[in-house]
């Protein structure tokens, strides 16, 4: 464990807690893409299948349970909570996210480190996580401006990915044989997807005006 990875995990934790608290306190999920939340639930479900078979540390197991619990509760809140589900913007959140799942599954069947059930699903979760934010970014473009909590959520997610890249650079220089192209490339693609959002987000901060994303 290094400081970059710990900071990355804490930033990731903060992002899901910001979202969960927002939905729980103001009982609204306006501006939040359910599709992205469903994709993240699938990402965690397929990535943490080894939670019962392999144990790394209390921290690792605890964080896996927190990420699984928070992502699934956000989806359940948005789908079934009597008040929250009414604020879900069904008409705008129309990204065909199932079209993302199949190519990621096929890619995982083609490109993986080991051809085992757990490894292929783990690789699938890497590819899916790289594109999971797309429905949310599309929704932000459509709704033009965003409330600051959803902006903070995406911002923190991007921060977690950026810190993970620093973590990989650190591990590359400190651990022998630390070469994992699959993780690195999918992680890089994911981080680049946030790049343009970061640009507009920082602009809105600089000019201290409401974040307006270009159409």
């Amino acid at each position: 464990m290094n400081i970059f990875r710990l900071a990355g995990d804490m930033t990731h934790l903060a992002s899901v807690l910001v979202l969960l608290l927002k939905i729980h306190t103001i009982k609204s999920c306006a501006g939040v893409s359910l599709k992205t939340q469903e994709l993240y639930a699938i990402v965690f479900a397929t990535r943490y299948l080894d939670i019962f078979t392999s144990f790394y540390s209390i921290y690792n197991t605890l964080m896996k349970l927190v990420f699984l619990g928070s992502s699934f509760s956000i989806v359940l809140y948005m789908k079934y909570h009597k008040t929250v589900h009414r604020s879900y913007d069904r008409e705008q959140d129309t990204f065909r996210h199932w079209f993302l799942v199949l190519p990621c599954l096929l890619l995982a069947l083609l490109i993986h480190e080991k051809f085992t059930f757990l490894e292929v699903l783990w690789t699938f979760s890497l590819y899916l996580e790289a594109v999971a934010i797309l429905p949310q970014l599309v929704l932000l473009q459509r709704t033009r401006n965003i409330d600051n909590l959803t902006g903070q959520y995406v911002f923190l997610l991007g921060g977690y990915r950026g810190l993970y890249i620093l973590n990989w650079i650190y591990r590359y220089f400190t651990e022998p044989h630390f070469v994992h192209w699959i993780t690195w490339i999918s992680g890089l693609v994911q981080t680049l997807l946030y790049a343009d959002f970061f640009f507009y987000y920082s602009q809105s901060w600089k000019n201290n005006k409401k974040l307006q994303l270009p159409a």
Partner: peptide, 10 residues
């Protein structure tokens, strides 16, 4: 030498 694995990452 065993390859370091990524499964210890979240």
């Amino acid at each position: 030498p065993n390859k370091s694995n990524m499964k210890d990452e979240l």
